[in-house]
Amino acid sequence: MKTTLSLTVNGINRDDVVPDNMLLVDYLREKAGLTGTKIGCDGGECGACTVLINDRPRHACLTLAATCQNAKVETVDGLSRDGRLTAIQRGFHEKLGAQCGFCTPGMIMASEALLRRNPDPSEADIRAALAANICRCTGYVKIIEAVQFAARELSA
């Protein structure tokens, strides 16, 4: 079975015919050609696929594309506008929150969701918001600093 899916991805309207069993992560990577979102596990274990659906962080590998009818989907590919890194991207870049960069798209989207609902998060808030995202490179120390950097930038 197939569905005609209408949604916005990174602010652009799209209409696609998608199989009902297609995962959102496959839709984004293969149909929309947005490979910023990563697949790090066999389903719901790592957070690398985190995207925003209507401003909330979601595992794109556990979401069926067809359930995103009329939704606003955002991925790391669409964050920076006019070629400028956003505050959270700058944070991960300048504070070395990204080493290999494979967890980074998921980390950034989960952090983005946090900062949208809580512009001044405590360290505990940051940890809670990123609890479902695994990073194997950084030990998380600089990831926390990256989010704190972004929060400061946004409030300035």
């Binding site: 910023g36 920076s80 070395l96 960069g101």
Partner: peptide, 10 residues
Amino acid sequence: LVDGPEKTTG
């Protein structure tokens, strides 16, 4: 890192 912008933009 010199490749930080690529990693943070996908």
